[in-house]
Amino acid sequence: MRAAFTRLLRGQGEILGLLVFFAVVLVFFGLTTPRFLAAGTFQSIAFQLPELGLLTLAMLLPILSGGLNLAITFTANIAGLAMAWVIQLGGGPEAGLMMVLLGTAAALAVGALAGGVMGVVVAFVGAHPILVSLAMMIFLRGLGEFLTRGGDISGFPPFIATIGHGTVFGIPLPLLILLVAALLWQVLLGRSRFGFSTYMAGSNLEATRYSGIDTRRVLVLVYVLSGVMSAVAGILMLTRFNSVRVGHGEAYLLITVLACFLGGVDPFGGFGRTAAVVLALVILQTIASGLNLMGAHQHLATALWGVFLIAVMVGRWVWQRWSWRAPG
């Protein structure tokens, strides 16, 4: 019995640690912010979490493969733009369900294309993912600003808002979308050949190739899926704000990186689990909502995220040194 329990605990250390941290966060805001422990807070967390969550899932895959995708937020914007464009062609506010579905397909295709181009350059040219995704980010931002002239695109059929604001059995629809996406990632990374290969390639690309894995295909797929997941986030943003603006969600980039590292993902690739990252996300969104309730200045919050990222990295460094020395 006890052996079974320790086996259960083993390898779950980071999840436990995160749960403890979550409890600390809840207690802190509960004590300092009177309105924090109310249903409304958690309702708002449930609605805000999904955009950030989907983008984090989009960031997770490239990091596991030993890279990075700095273009996720702008991929989301451009995908949203593609959807908006199709809907406008189909009559704007009068557009039917068919056009909306077509728009969704267009958005996903645009996400896949943006990711695919990055994947091909990373996998076949061997260029640095930071550089490639940075170039893609600059390109997409420019493209978006060129197409929208820096303004908002709006005018969608009202039923679209149900996706962004509706609930099913009391659970917000966006949250359900995130849950499905996270579950998909969990299965893909934990139980598929592709996921297996992604982890291996993230640790050592050449050794993985020598073992007979088509690492180029894996890398291209990593960035395609990252692009598609960004597009899903873009679609969700469109339905929540009933508009598309290039640059929306730009600040999320830092938080997605933060969520991955807080969730125990190795910055050099090869290690990291979806469940822990999702838990880290919940914590971060709770902190964000808590800060919001405390009335923290928007830019002060930005700075705090930066400090938090550094703190997490330093904490990991301390933890590593400690656990490295402990057994010897």
């Binding site: 830092l254 930005t302 700075a303 930066g306 400090v307 990222l309 550094i310 330093v314």
Partner: peptide, 27 residues
């Protein structure tokens, strides 16, 4: 110092300090 003493990769450090510098400046 963050990059050297805590062995954090430079892109992560500078993403963080980018936000710290900008956030505090605007604040």
């Amino acid at each position: 110092s963050l990059i050297y003493y805590f062995r954090i990769i430079s892109i992560v450090v500078t993403i963080a300090t980018f936000n710290i510098f900008f956030g505090l400046l605007m604040f």
